[in-house]
Design a protein around this nucleic acid. Sequence first.
RNA 1: GGCGCGUUGGUCAAGGGGUUAAGACGCCUCCCUUUCACGGAGGAAUCACGGGUUCGAAUCCCGUACGUGCUACCA
Length: 514
Amino acid sequence: MKKVRVRFAPSPTGGLHLGGLRTALYNYFYAKQHNGDFILRIEDTDQTRFVKGAEEYIIDSLNWCGIQPNEGPHNEGKYAPYRQSERKDIYRKYAEELVKKGHAYYAFDTTEEIEALREKLKSEGKSNLQYGYDVRHQMRNSLSLPPEETEALLKINFPHVIRIKIIKNEFVHFKDMIRGDIEMETNGVDDKVLLKADGMPTYHLAVVVDDYLMKITHAFRGEEWLPSAPVHVLLWKYLGWESDMPKWAHLPLILKPDGNGKLSKRDGERLGFPVFAKEWNDPKTGESMKGFKEIGFLPEAFVNMLALLGWNDGSQQEIFSMDELVKNFSIERVHSSGAKFDYEKAKWFNHEWIKKSHPDRLLAPVKDLFTEKGIIINDHKKLTKVIDLVKERCTLLTDFLEQADFFFATPIQIDTTSILSKWNQNKNLFFNELIRSYQLTTLVKAVEFENIFKEISAINQLKPGELMLPFRIMLVGGKHGPAVFDIASILGKEETIKRIEHGLSMLNLAQKAN
RNA sequence: GGCGCGUUGGUCAAGGGGUUAAGACGCCUCCCUUUCACGGAGGAAUCACGGGUUCGAAUCCCGUACGUGCUACCA
């Protein structure tokens, strides 16, 4: 048995959206499950290789998801280099070998010439130009030109590409791990460019050459590659490597939540949800787009959500840790149809993960969030308690800000209007009495705060229910938060008293103003 | 237009000849809770359509429709 080796080969220009990330995940699960290697290869070109920080961004995103590549793109290794732009000579060599074997040819047509022909055909109402069997003999290439002329053109380095020579009426079949046996006629594909005029390979050449050289055993990629799969299979055959061809799996697409179509980064903007794992700053447009991380997702939840978009293990389990995903994943159970992305469900996954996470796991990210907002927290013990108390009401990590900031910063403004209409002298007296009683007692636990509260309300013949809301607003500033006495307990006696006093004076002020 | 791939509630989906067609998200009602959540109970809502095959079809076959992808010197 060959050792499992999978590769993930993102392009550095577009960032890494949901679909690409899921492909990476599925590759990773499979490799991990078989104790194999996960290789990170960069599909860059001369134009894109210098996109600032793009490669680091890809690595960061993968790391955040919990994926550490075994090889590439920085590693020196047996199979280095891992960047397409640094492998130009390799591709040229194999492209020329194909020409020699008669499976490919040089083409000297300029882009303008092809474009003109395309336009002409279109205006005549004919279908799209297919540079292939039907037209290649009318074009300028090493198949139609006399050998001397081809040689002369090559000698003066006339700009040219190398195209694969597709045989007409041939059937190509291969097995897809998700879709089963697939048979396609070669007539559907044209003579794809393998090597571009600038010397860079197209994807078609690069995947097969690299997959062969890097000993890839399994190739999982998006469904959009299915139509050109025959080209790749043919290439494996023409290069004489058929027996080493990896097993294919074409993953379903992730679709827009509304309407139809492949999910794009524009949709995220339009519908108000992230499409990247981490914040992506497009150096070309200068745009900055928040990622799931910045919105407040736990990587565990993000990975869980993405993994289940197009796959499930057949059981009713929905919450999976990375280890469980690695253990239970099976490529055969991946769907063959596309799935619409549902942000509500994505948030639900995060909510579940926040609820089940130990407060210690949440401490660092929550603390960072507070620090960003200017609230410095040094008391980790208190923070842990607070997190434990409010986590079940937080869907996003950023919700902790709203749910818990009052524990660390005294609310200046309080919602007096919600109290004022039912405020009276009796209640005023009650709270003053409450302060005195609290002062006289040692108070730690929530029940202790509660018992005294109820005692005094009974003495004053007031229903505790009518007093809870004012109490809450004094402590919190508004009508939210966990159970009041829990809040008081964490705040401590001194702070609680201080906030009641402050609340009372605010109430007085508001009453006078009325 | 050509070719490929797909189609189970609004969404994610289980189910691969006999099921009252699971479950989850979202939505609605109620309970719990004198805030909001969490939790609990319940509800509405589905096999794209038409033909076969079969005693029997969501499941197998063929058409149609619809969707989606590809049809670049992009990946």
